[in-house]
Design a protein around this nucleic acid. Structure first.
Lengths: 234, 234
DNA sequence: TATAATAAATGTAAATTTTACGCTAATTTT
DNA sequence: AAAATTAGCGTAAAATTTACATTTATTATA
């Protein structure tokens, strides 16, 4: 790794390029973020996003995928570039710009051991500690982008297990939009999109009656998108 | 300037950070782009976006503002980060990531001499020559982002002279969305937003009858945005 | 084994927004 | 004076969104 360590602090001749990952998960009806407790100076003990310097021979998005893999064990995850942060003084030590990406992962799939090894843990969005540098800003921006993207493409499914119930899906959208949705209208809307495949199974964890499980129909979604269908949800 | 010149080509140890500007204008009912004919090797004579390396002590957005000022003479222009382009091989010579921004300028205000000095000229979007590196991709992405942003915030006004007519505004939105809009519905919509101030002047360049001129009411716009008003247009 | 408790599932009417559409008005050119 | 041209306006139909209450399936418990 070519990362500047403590001794490089205050060296300004070089411009470093980093990437930071805003990792969203959804659990217990809450939107959560995976944050990282720094084990090394500078800023040891503080909370931050997970990041890395981009290697000289590495695509930007590949760098971010590497970080995600290293910290959660996950690959082939929904990930999207958020923004490049480049205030000259954003890092007090050296000049470093950071290309932030946000990722949506299924919270039941990540490698718990790896996460622990990296000093990372999940926080509910409302209970996030404050993060180093401009990472709070990154999180705010990512939340907005998530909200905007969720409205027009069914990315919510990336945060749920493969099989999910409609009430679960609704709770997720309520967490993303931070407002309550009408369950009749929501159900009407999402079923009318023709991208939910109803299974013959029920999930009984949420209620006595149990709710039918659904799968997201990727193929039909692709077809409909190509035909110009508008996927606005809620 | 610390830009790598010809002789630095093929040096890969360093990661360069650049910015490129996608400069939109609106003229003669058409959306146009300001592109730059390279006067130096490599790729001399090819068309490209206007860009620059980011200085070690310069904010990203400031770098982009500098480029815009240098090439058009304009300041305080609507400008927004588009995306950071960072494929490892996007520039065949050296490793360079580019943070692209797009700018909306009033085509009657720029410094024509400066533009000429820089070997730049306006092209209609539909008639763009192909550009170097990944600049075609940048333009495509910028067009999409412009379309998306125009729908929810009244950025169209940034492309028109201070005084404009409703038919001009409509033509602009038609160019952005690439489809015809109904003039009665369009007029109804934009006037109902309460951000247009009708003047007592007419513009007679477009018709015998002449159309009333309007001004964009920035103050009221800000007020309405703060009150949570939704500015969806067309 | 009856009943109380709980969340899932369903339909309809009213309100709002969007779309479609044709005529008159003001001015200039011929 | 007539013809040509774009500006400006209003209304009805269609589509979408919103608001709202009851029944159903199942488990827990009395």
């Amino acid at each position: 790794m070519t990362e500047p360590q403590q001794d490089l602090y205050q060296i300004k001749e070089k411009m470093y390029v980093a990437t930071d990952c805003i990792i969203f998960g959804f659990d217990e009806g809450k939107l959560k973020l995976l944050v990282f407790n720094r084990r090394v100076e500078p800023l040891k003990g503080e909370w931050s996003l997970i990041g890395s310097f981009v290697r000289i021979d590495e695509d930007l998005d590949v760098a971010c995928e590497r970080v995600l893999k290293e910290t959660t064990g996950l690959e082939n995850v929904f990930m999207q570039q958020l923004k490049c942060y480049g205030k000259k003084d954003r890092d007090p030590g050296y000049r470093c710009i950071s290309v932030a990406h946000y990722a949506l992962i299924r919270i039941d799939e990540y490698d718990k051991e790896l996460v622990e090894q990296h000093g990372a843990r999940w926080y509910e969005i409302e209970e996030l500690p404050s993060l180093i540098l401009d990472h709070d800003q990154m999180v705010q921006d990512a939340l907005h982008q998530l909200e905007n993207n969720a409205r027009y493409r069914p990315i919510g499914f990336e945060l749920l297990p493969e099989k999910f119930t409609i009430p679960q899906l609704q709770t997720l959208y309520e967490a993303i939009y931070q407002r309550d949705l009408d369950s009749r209208n929501f159900r009407k809307k999402v079923t009318s999109l023709n991208v939910l495949e109803k299974l013959d199974e029920k999930d009984k964890s949420g209620s006595k009656r149990g709710a039918f499980l659904y799968k997201f129909d990727h193929d039909n979604y692709e077809k409909l998108v190509r035909s110009g269908f508008n996927f606005e949800i809620a």
